[in-house]
C-alpha cells in the first residue's frame, strides 16, 4: 500500500493542481483532519472516498481557503487557496444550499459572472448546462436536479482548471446521477482536473481515475479502483455452522491466509487470502455446511481499510 501516488507527469513546468502537506484541522478535542498528505496532478479525476466524518469536507474547506489549517499547508496550482479562488483557477460545487431562492436562474449566473475577472459568456453557460429554457425561473421554484445543474454552471463560469465537488449527487435519482457524471467526464476529457468527495463506492469506481480513501482524517489508501480492491485481495467464505462455540471458530485463525473471522448467529464469515484451505477445513473438520465463497469488491476493501481490525468473540 502506498501512501502517496507517484506523479503521473514529470515534475517541472506546472505545479500540482493540489498539494496538501501535513494538513491538520481540529475542532476542540476532535481532530477532523490528521496530518493529511495529498498531491493531485493536473488532468487527474480523483475520488475522495470515505465514510461520513472521515474529514473529507474539512479537507476540501481548507483546499478552497474556506477555513485555515491548524497545521500543515494547502496549495492549489502553487498558490494559496484564496489566491487560486480569486483568480478563478479553482471552483467548487457544494452539496446543498448556496443559492438565493429569490433570484432567477439567469440572474444567479449573471451575478456570479460579474464577480470574476474572466468568464465564459453567460448565455453560453446557461445553454450548455441546459438551463436556457428556465433562465427566467426563480431558483426557489427549481427542482433539486435543476439547482444542481445551476451550481455546476456557476462553477464552470470562470473556466477553472480544477473543479471540486463535495458529494455532488446527494439526493439525485439514478438517472440524474448518470447525466451529471456524464457531463463531468466530458468536461474532464478537455483536460480539467476534477476532485470529488463521495461516499458512493460505485461513483468512485465508475468515474474516477484514482481513488483516495480517507478515514480518521488520514489517507489510508491511494490508487486506481483496481489497486484499491487488490489491497484487500482475497475472498469471503461463509457457511452455516450451528451451535458453534466462539473458541471453535477462533481455531480458524490458525489456518493460512485467514484475516478475519466473524460469527453472526449460526453463520460464520471468514475473510481469507486462501479460500480453498478454509473451505476444506470447514467441510471436513467441522459440522459447517451450505458453504459459499465470494470475491470481495470495492466495498469490502473500503470496509477493511476504514474500520479498525476486530477480534473474534466480540460479535458485531
Amino acid at each position: 500500500m502506498t501512501q502517496t501516488q507517484q506523479p503521473i507527469r514529470t515534475a517541472g513546468t506546472t505545479p500540482p493542481a493540489v498539494a496538501l502537506s501535513g494538513l491538520t484541522k481540529r475542532f476542540g478535542p476532535v481532530t477532523a483532519v490528521d496530518g493529511l498528505d495529498l498531491t493531485v496532478q493536473p488532468g487527474e479525476v480523483v475520488a475522495f472516498l470515505g465514510p461520513n466524518g472521515a474529514g473529507k469536507t474539512s479537507t476540501i474547506d481548507m483546499m478552497l481557503g474556506l477555513s485555515q489549517p491548524d497545521a500543515g499547508t494547502a496549495e492549489v496550482f502553487g498558490r494559496a487557496p484564496r489566491t487560486a479562488v480569486a483568480q478563478g483557477l479553482v471552483t467548487a460545487v457544494m452539496q446543498s444550499g448556496g443559492l438565493l431562492k429569490d433570484l432567477t436562474v439567469g440572474e444567479t449566473v449573471e451575478l456570479t459572472a460579474a464577480l470574476f475577472a474572466h468568464t465564459r459568456p453567460v448565455a453560453e453557460v446557461l445553454d450548455r448546462a441546459g438551463l436556457a429554457d428556465i433562465a427566467g425561473r426563480r431558483v426557489g421554484k427549481c427542482s433539486g436536479g435543476q439547482q444542481q445543474r445551476l451550481r455546476f454552471a456557476m462553477a464552470l463560469l470562470p473556466e477553472p482548471e480544477l473543479i471540486v465537488l463535495d458529494e455532488p449527487t446527494t439526493g439525485m435519482d439514478v438517472e440524474g446521477r448518470r447525466e451529471f457524471w456524464g457531463a463531468i467526464r466530458a468536461d474532464a476529457e478537455q483536460g480539467r482536473t476534477v476532485l470529488f468527495a463521495t461516499h458512493y463506492l460505485d461513483e468512485a469506481d465508475a468515474y474516477a481515475d484514482r481513488i483516495v480513501l480517507v478515514s480518521g482524517g488520514r489517507v489510508v489508501a491511494d490508487g486506481t479502483a483496481a489497486e484499491i480492491k487488490a489491497m484487500s485481495a482475497g475472498r469471503l467464505v461463509s457457511a452455516t455452522w450451528t451451535d458453534v462455540a466462539p473458541a471453535q471458530a477462533a481455531e480458524l485463525y490458525g489456518l493460512d491466509g485467514v484475516e478475519d473471522v466473524e460469527l453472526r448467529g449460526d453463520t460464520v464469515l471468514v475473510r481469507t487470502r486462501d479460500s480453498d484451505v478454509v473451505a476444506r477445513y470447514l467441510l471436513t473438520a467441522t459440522t459447517a455446511h451450505d458453504l459459499q465463497v465470494t470475491s470481495r469488491g470495492l466495498e469490502d476493501a473500503f470496509l477493511a481499510l476504514t474500520t479498525p481490525p476486530t477480534t473474534l468473540g466480540a460479535s458485531r
Binding site: A86, G88, A114, F116, A117, E159, D187, R192
Partner: peptide
Amino acid sequence: MTTAVLPATERRVPPLGGFS
C-alpha cells in the same frame, strides 16, 4: 464544448475586490 482553459499566468483577480 471548446475548453481553451485560460493559462494560469494570464489569470487575473478582478479590480476593486470584485465590486460590480
